[in-house]
Structure formats: structure tokens, C-alpha cells
Design a binder for these strands. Sequence first.
DNA 1: TCATTAACGGGACTCCTGTTCCATTAGCGC
DNA 2: GCGCTAATGGAACAGGAGTCCCGTTAATGA
Lengths: 203, 203
Amino acid sequence: MTSSTPAGMQRPGGRTARVRAAVLRAAEDALVEVGFAGFDLGDVARRAEVGRTTVYRRWGTVGALLADVLTGMAEQSLPRARTGSLHEDLRANARLVRRTLADPRQGALFRAVLVAAAGDPAAAEALHRFYRVRVAEWAPCVTEAVERGEVPAGTDPEEVVRAVSAPLYYRMLTTAEPLDEAAADRAAAAAEAAARAGAFRAG
Amino acid sequence: MTSSTPAGMQRPGGRTARVRAAVLRAAEDALVEVGFAGFDLGDVARRAEVGRTTVYRRWGTVGALLADVLTGMAEQSLPRARTGSLHEDLRANARLVRRTLADPRQGALFRAVLVAAAGDPAAAEALHRFYRVRVAEWAPCVTEAVERGEVPAGTDPEEVVRAVSAPLYYRMLTTAEPLDEAAADRAAAAAEAAARAGAFRAG
DNA sequence: TCATTAACGGGACTCCTGTTCCATTAGCGC
DNA sequence: GCGCTAATGGAACAGGAGTCCCGTTAATGA
């Protein structure tokens, strides 16, 4: 499941690992350059200087390959903020999400995987796992805010974290407006206000 | 631009209109049944009992055809709620959005167009126009709430409306959890709380 | 009603994606 | 090292998506 140890391989060392790494890197490059629409496994094989047959045999579908790319991205998860204030923590989270989506490379990857997940169960599963991990990583910011009394008891921490990201994704998908830092700060402020008002209490 | 009067056609009557309607209906059916991944213009032509050549000549790309389908959907826009209370209005909006996304037919269409918009400029433009119209339709709910004093002056009405939809779309895309009515009500309540706290004042 | 021609439809053709077969290369255990 | 065989890579093959050409149909206006 990790980048260096392909699952299901009986000889995961040397050449196999090299091929795998080259293909995953080539897949990222291809996504950024041609986007999801023009994404082609044959093209990826060419970029990776690997046989087409190998790519089709190991991954088979676009969705499976993107799921693997996403799994690799999940491993380099950035640690959450620990500023001691809910306001600062949520803003840090919003800005991190914004920076990721606005980054030409990472943004293209996320959009591509979102698209792939709509049609491929493997990609969808990888995507859902990715967000479960990311949300769980930041949830303690809210838990600690509850303990500090900043937010009502019973507040669902993960729901608050999701509320920070949601407006940014919605804006990216449904409008042509750029994702600037002001939008990130607004998203964080709105989630914080709703949390303080008790809108995310379970029940 | 309307369904019955194709733009750019010099003979929009009779046969042309019939062909157009059949193709758009077939496109919706195909999307619901095979999804965006398996969407093929030849298949649409077969379903519509129309020549492949016609479909390729009139629309050319998947994105262009989906943009046309979406334009048709935008025309049958439902009127906004007018309950006299921000709470009820936002909840009505959230429930409408939820019902639309959870509906097998409309939900599949929306996901497909979101996907198409990621790779096709024409589809993206149609999608953005669609959401501009939808948001503008519901914005008066917030404007009136400002006039009633429910929400601070200077609140951006469209931002509040978007804040209602955002968590629902985010949930649909990034988790496997079903979009139930409780989720809709939570989304409405969170947006309302943030609005009352002044989180959406222009700045 | 009739002439004009916009729009449609069938079929052949091309290119590209994905599969299969088999020879070659190189991990891995001994 | 050496042998075994997992894994790779090239080449030939099949199927399908999109294009082009041209004959047919029917909307439009007089």
C-alpha cells in the first residue's frame, strides 16, 4: 500500500519499485499538463519510459492509477496547526486547503481525482479514505476548543473541519472566481461562527 | 438558446427541433444509466434514433452536449421560498438542493456536468451560469432577512446562499455517506448561524 | 403547390485505445 | 554465482470513437 512496497507484488524490489515510481510521477505530470480529459495510460507509459503493457497490467484503468497516486499524496500529510485558539487553527486549515487547491500541480491532481471518483469505485474509495484521514488529523483543533470552552459541548469536531473546506471546494467547482486568501479566511470565519453558535452539536 | 429554438440554426422548426429534443432526452438517459465515464455520443445517437453524424455535427463534443442539457435544466428553475423567516427559507433551500442531488436522475446529471466542466470550457461556462442563476434566485431571502433585522447590514446575500449548498456538495463528493434530510437541515442551520453572527459581511 | 437548400443519415475510412501473445530481462532464494 | 520465474516490453491484433463524403429528406418562402 506504500509507494515503495506495491501490494500484491511477489518481487517488489529494484525494477518493479522503479517502474512504479516512474509511472506514478509520469501520471502526475500528465494530469497537470493535459488534465483528466486527455489522460491516457499509453501516454503515461511513454512519459515514464515504460511499456504500455506494464501500465495496463498493473493498474488497468485510469481510476485505479489515480487512486494509487492519491494514496501516495495521503502519505505526505501535513501536520495540523496547534495555535491554541480555534480562530487561528481554522484559519490555518482554510489557508492550507486553499493553497493546495490553488497550486497548479496539486490543484489539478485533486480535481482529476474528484472527477475519477465519480466514475470509478477504486478512485472513490481512495478519495474517501484520503478525506477521512485529513479531517481526522485536524479534528483535535475543535476538540481542544471544546475543552477550552470556546465551543459548546457536544459539537461534532469533524463536521466543523468539513465546514471549513466545503465553501472552498464549492467555490472552485461552481464559479469561475479565483480561490484567494480572503475566501479562505471567510470560510474559516463562517465555520467558526457556526460552531460557536452550536450549529454542529450532534443530534 | 431555448430548447425549442436551437441557436445558429437556419431551419429550427419541425425536424430539427424534434431531433434536438430527442438527443437531449437520450443524453440524460444515457448519463443516468451509464454515467459520465461510459458516456458516448454514438450511444446517444442510437438511443435518440438519430444519425451519429448529426450528433457529431451539431454538438461535436461531450462537453458541448452536456452544456446544452444543463441549459435546458436551468430553464425549469423552481421558485424560491417566501416563508417570512430566514430559518425556514434557508431550510427550504437546503432541502431542495438535497432532494435534487439525492434524486437518481438529477443527481447523476449534476455529477456528470460537474465532471464535464472540469475538462470542457463550454460545460464549465454553462455550469457557472447555472449556479449564478440559482443563487440569484434565492438571494432575496437573505436580503429580506437583512431588512427585517434578522441579519447584520452589509451581509452578502449570495455568499449566504452558497454557504447552504456548499456542505451538501462537499459531503456528496468527499464521503460515501448518504445525503439525508438531517444533513440538509444542519447545513441550513450552520449557514444561518454564521450569517446572524455577521460572518458574511462584505469586507 | 413547387423550387431551393438546410439539415439529416448511412457507410466507408482512419486513428487510437486497450488486449493478447510471447520473447527477454532481472529479482530473489539457494 | 546460478537457476527459477516474476515482471517487463515489443509487436501484432481487435474494437470502437470520431471524421468525411455524398445521397436523401423535409423545412421554408414564394
